[in-house]
Simulated scan of single mutants.
Amino acid sequence: MADFDCPDQVSVVIRPSGGDDHSLSAADFIKQVDALRQLLALSEARGAVDARIVKLHMNSPATVVMETIGADDRPVDLSSFFRGIEAVVVGGQAPREFERPVFEALRDFAAVVGKSVRSATLEAFGRTILIDLEARKRIESVFGEDTSAEGTVDGMLEAVNVHGKKNTFGLYPIVGASRVSCKFEDDLLAKVRPALGRYVIIEGELKYRWREKFPYEARATKIEVMDEDQPSFIDILGMAPNATGGLASEDFTRKVRHGWH
């Protein structure tokens, strides 16, 4: 196991399937380290968390030690976060405070286990968490089914496709998913055409992925084009210079997308 210089460090020990005397795939190594970086970045809803590598042992088993750094460039305590990670890995539980991206990052981290990687061990904030093939299956099992509900969503309507009766368009909201894929029936085509390239509100059946607050797909039954005298993005640029509360725009966007409770 890794030796820690301070309690705010996170280590991962990656053991290849052939044993500790075998080599490790570079692609799998990079995938696991990057997934761990993403996991740490999602750990705090109140501010950005980054990680820097402070130790790296390339001899098999490969070991990487990261130090967690907050927005103020100070180490952060993620002990409660890793209690939740342990609950997922060991108990197959889904802590309510975790948004879907946390589970996805953990699933990506475990994806190579059982293939070229025999196991990966996380040591963080007093916890030792073994991720082997059985743990990987528990992580994958926590994902729930998609849901649907009637509702509305707004955004820019683009990319209409009626070839072969596909009847789809893309909706690009300001907040939430970067794109909502929308389907519609033939009787709505007359309203879709003039709405192309304009900001609209659509109503219909919205589909949500498990643990996501914003829809990723919709079956539109109504379309309302917003008033043309609305301010453009250029018009509103700079109107609220303190809207992010002092956070950098990247950190604020991460908070909006992953930190709502």
Rank of each mutant, 00 (worst) to 15 (best):
T68Y: 08
A62K: 01
L106A: 04
G91V: 05
G70L: 08
A111H: 08
G70C: 01
R136V: 07
E97L: 15
K137H: 02
K115R: 02
G92P: 08
A94H: 06
I131W: 14
I131P: 10
A149W: 01
G84A: 14
E97C: 13
N59Q: 06
A149K: 12
R100C: 10
R37F: 09
I53L: 01
V88Q: 05
I139R: 10
D146I: 05
F125Q: 13
D28Y: 02
R52V: 06
F109L: 10
V113C: 08
S60Y: 07
S43Y: 08
R127S: 08
F29D: 01
L42H: 04
T147E: 12
I30R: 10
A35P: 00
A35S: 05
R74Q: 13
I53R: 11
K115L: 02
R46F: 00
R138N: 08
I69R: 13
V49S: 03
G84T: 15
H57E: 00
E99G: 15
L106R: 11
T68K: 04
E104K: 15
S119M: 13
R52C: 10
K115S: 01
V54S: 07
F29Q: 09
S43C: 07
V88P: 00
G144W: 15
I30E: 13
A87Q: 12
T121E: 06
F81C: 09
T147C: 12
L36C: 01
E86S: 15
R100M: 08
S116L: 01
T68Q: 06
P75I: 09
F103S: 13
K31N: 05
E86N: 15
V102S: 10
T128E: 14
R46S: 04
V112S: 05
A27D: 05
E97D: 08
E97S: 15
T68P: 07
A62Q: 03
D146N: 10
P101V: 06
F82K: 13
S116N: 03
E123T: 13
N59V: 11
S141M: 01
N59L: 06
Q32L: 10
M66L: 11
E145S: 14
G92Q: 03
E134S: 14
L36F: 10
A120I: 03
T128M: 15
A62F: 13
A135L: 14
Q32M: 09
A45I: 08
S80F: 05
E140F: 00
A35Q: 07
R107A: 03
L40K: 11
L39W: 02
G126K: 04
I139S: 01
S119A: 10
S148F: 01
T128P: 09
L42Q: 01
S116R: 00
V33R: 07
D72Y: 11
F103K: 11
L130D: 11
T68F: 11
V90E: 09
A149N: 14
V76M: 02
F125A: 15
H57A: 04
D72S: 08
D146V: 12
G91W: 01
A94N: 04
G114A: 04
V49R: 00
S116F: 00
E123C: 05
F81K: 02
A105E: 15
A27S: 07
F98Q: 09
V88K: 03
E140I: 05
E99M: 12
G126R: 11
D77T: 05
P101D: 01
G126S: 12
S141T: 15
Q93H: 03
G84S: 13
R127E: 11
N59S: 02
